[in-house]
Design a protein around this nucleic acid. Structure first.
Length: 680
DNA sequence: GACTGAGTAAACACGG
DNA sequence: CCCGTGTTTACTCAGT
């Protein structure tokens, strides 16, 4: 019909979803724009020279860091007094602290400093600690700084690409080079600063310590490829955060990632007596390997790649794995230095994790923003879990959940998806299946409780001319239950439809007729003569009955259930389904207001009461549970009295064992209902 | 292929 | 007579 075609078009529109593209675009834009400098300019400047950069110059940064270092130094001295450092004896304390900084430096500044340079700087305990703290600070600063640079570069790259002139990779490489030069410069400044400190007696350097303090900077340089990738990963279109995480993990393979796995300080910090294991690997490394999937791959090692040692700051070339192992054992044995390096690496990882968390948060916020735009509803991957595999029961579940219009029961939708999708759950799958009149029965099965679904996509349905994935019955019921007194006139129902759904602002004759048809057809809708005329109410019991579980497949099972004699015969899957479907109900007892609640309760008592108890899955036979919706449905359908009306017979059901009353007691009911509904 | 739920269309009755 | 409301029937479609 026309309606259908209309919905069809609408569906296609949102499904086109170019959200990804826009998302990425925004990401890039925000990231780049936030920096406040023109990407192009920055990039070129960087190519030529470090100082021409318009942003915070390395010198400035260094100056700032130096000031911080002084401050930290004072703090450190105080801390030393309080014995904050390593618990071990004085020696260990000294050695540990003494090693840490240099090591970290060494591992961080591999590319930047030559071994000689690194050896050059020696550090006493205090300096070590100072540097360590300073390092943390600078690490953060550098990472941010570097990130900015990368953002700019990325932005520039994008800009140029958009201009149809794909920038040669060299350009980017040059920029990175320039940036590294900047870093180097900063390192040098830092070294000078350190020397000054040394002269002043603030610190003294030990010869055997690997590199100077400045190496911290390089740490960022070590990760230059990592950070940008991480950033790109999140910003890149179609590249979910997960990918970025993966990338990070990959990039940091052997470093950050692995370090994280064995980040437990106790393991690392205290110098262990034993250095190597049978396999020749250091204890620390071994443990790391063990936890790593890489370990399993013979001939590979997380710390070995491209023929060189990936140990932070090492890069020693190794012909093969064997040589590498040897190298590991000799150069990276479990000593203070390695331990300190691990610590530093831990810091790196922590920083990255923090950064990742931040970026993830941002990504979510961006996605939320984009998806929540009512004007541009975007299709969304099915956020709901239609309970695959239990289709026959899912329906019951839905209906049960539907019984709580107040929205107390929220489908997994919101929980599952970080962002509340505007796109109606049912649209993607069944509700909009093409062609023909809108037959959304299936969608109804898939959709979450109408109340929550509506609550979440309220704006969407309100503005988008999309047919809601609910049946007329469920919509009518929702409309009625939304009102305080749980009753509506026909006209009010009409109004609710038009108010809530843009879709129902057209073809009024059609859907109004359908509404009337449903009101009359379904027993769950009860017409009540009111002072002001006739109003419609909902009989929850009937509504629940309306959707008997698809037990057709197992008539015997149904019979068994009805008889109430073979509850134990219920197969596990069915019981599981019962339990599953029961949860929604369990959570939403409050949803029922006096009126509907009263009507619903009987149901639970009737059907649940006897039958449920035997069911182990639910564990509790507590009436409020209504756990066995399907079950109850079945029973009701078959034998339950049709007191659908106003459920004024809560007693009978309870008192008289309905289950067993497979016939006699409720004859009248059966006669009333069966002919019409079941036997028809 | 039968059964069933759902949507649509239409006829009809009734009362304001 | 028109309109809104309510009931009922018939048909079709889709899922099981």
């Amino acid at each position: 019909m026309m309606v259908e075609s209309a919905s069809e078009t609408i569906r296609s529109a949102p499904s086109g979803q170019n959200g990804v593209g826009s998302l990425s675009g925004q990401t890039d834009g925000s990231s780049g724009g936030a920096k406040g400098t023109t990407a192009s300019g920055t990039g070129r400047d960087m190519t030529t020279g470090a100082d021409s950069n318009g942003e915070m110059s390395p010198a400035e940064l260094l100056h700032f860091q130096q000031q911080q270092a002084l401050q930290v130094a004072r703090q450190f001295l105080l801390q030393q007094a309080s014995g904050l450092s390593s618990p071990g004896n004085n020696d260990s304390k000294q050695s540990a602290s003494a090693v840490q900084v240099p090591v970290s430096v060494a591992m961080m500044s591999p590319q930047m400093l030559t071994p000689q340079q690194m050896q050059q700087i020696l550090s006493p305990p205090q300096l070590q600690a100072l540097l360590q703290q300073q390092q943390a600070l600078m690490l953060q600063q550098l990472q941010e700084y570097y990130k900015k640079q990368q953002e700019q570069l990325h932005l520039q790259l994008l800009t140029q690409q958009q201009a149809g002139k794909p920038q040669p990779k060299e350009a980017l490489g040059n920029k990175q080079l320039a940036f590294q030069q900047q870093l180097l410069q900063m390192q040098q400044l830092q070294q000078q600063h350190l020397l000054n400190l040394q002269r002043q007696g603030l610190v003294s350097l030990q010869p055997n310590q690997a590199s100077g303090p400045l190496q911290t900077l390089p740490q960022a340089a070590v990760c230059p490829t990592d950070l940008p990738q991480l950033w790109k990963g999140e910003g890149a279109p179609g590249q979910p955060a997960e990918d970025s995480v993966k990338q990070e993990g990959l990039d940091l393979t052997g470093t950050a990632a692995t370090a994280t796995s064995f980040a437990a300080p106790p393991k690392v910090s205290p110098p262990l007596s034993h250095h190597t294991l049978p396999n020749g690997q250091p204890t620390v490394l071994t443990s790391r390997r063990d936890s790593s999937s890489h370990e399993e791959t013979p001939g590979s090692h997380p710390l070995y790649g491209h023929g060189e040692c990936k140990w932070p700051g090492c890069e020693t070339l190794c012909e093969d794995l064997g040589q590498f192992i040897k190298h590991l054992n000799t150069e990276h044995a479990l000593d203070d230095r390695s331990t300190a390096q691990c610590r530093v690496q831990m810091q790196v990882v922590q920083q990255l994790e923090i950064q990742l968390a931040k970026e993830s948060e941002r990504l979510q916020a961006m996605m939320a923003h984009l998806h929540m735009r009512p004007s541009e509803p975007k299709p969304f991957s099915q956020p709901l879990n239609p309970v695959p595999g239990s289709s026959s029961f899912s329906k019951v579940t839905v209906s049960a959940a539907d019984s709580f219009p107040d929205g107390l029961v929220h489908p997994p939708t919101s929980a599952a998806a970080p962002v509340t999708p505007l796109r109606p759950p049912g649209l993607g799958s069944a509700s909009l299946h093409g062609g023909g009149p809108a037959r959304r029965r299936s969608s109804d099965k898939f959709c979450s409780p109408i109340s929550s679904e509506l609550a979440q996509n309220h704006e969407f349905y309100k503005n988008a001319d999309v047919r809601p994935p609910f049946t007329y019955a469920s919509l009518i019921r929702q409309a009625i239950l939304e009102t305080p007194d749980r009753q509506l006139t026909l006209n009010e129902i009409y109004n609710w439809f038009t108010r809530m759904f843009a879709y129902f602002r057209r073809n009024t004759a059609t859907w109004k007729n359908a509404v009337r048809h449903n009101l009359s057809l379904h027993k769950c809708f009860v017409r009540v003569e009111n002072v002001k005329g006739a109003v419609w109410t909902v009989d929850e019991r009937e509504y629940q009955k309306r959707r008997p579980p698809k037990m057709t497949g197992s008539p015997t099972l149904v019979k068994n259930m009805i008889s109430g004699l073979s509850y134990g015969a219920l197969n596990a899957s069915y019981q599981a389904a019962l339990a599953e479907s029961s949860f929604p109900l369990l959570n939403s007892p409050g949803m029922l207001n006096p009126g509907s609640a009263s009507s619903l309760l009987p149901l639970s008592h009737d059907d649940v009461g006897a039958p449920v108890e035997p069911l182990p899955s639910n564990g509790s036979s507590s009436p409020p549970r209504l756990s066995p919706p399907q079950y109850s449905h079945q029973v009701q359908v078959k034998e339950e009295p049709a007191e659908a009306e106003e459920d004024r017979q809560p007693g009978p059901p309870l008192g008289t064992p309905n289950p067993s009353a497979s016939g006699p007691p409720e004859d009248r009911d059966l006669e009333e209902e069966l002919p019409g509904e079941e036997l028809s």
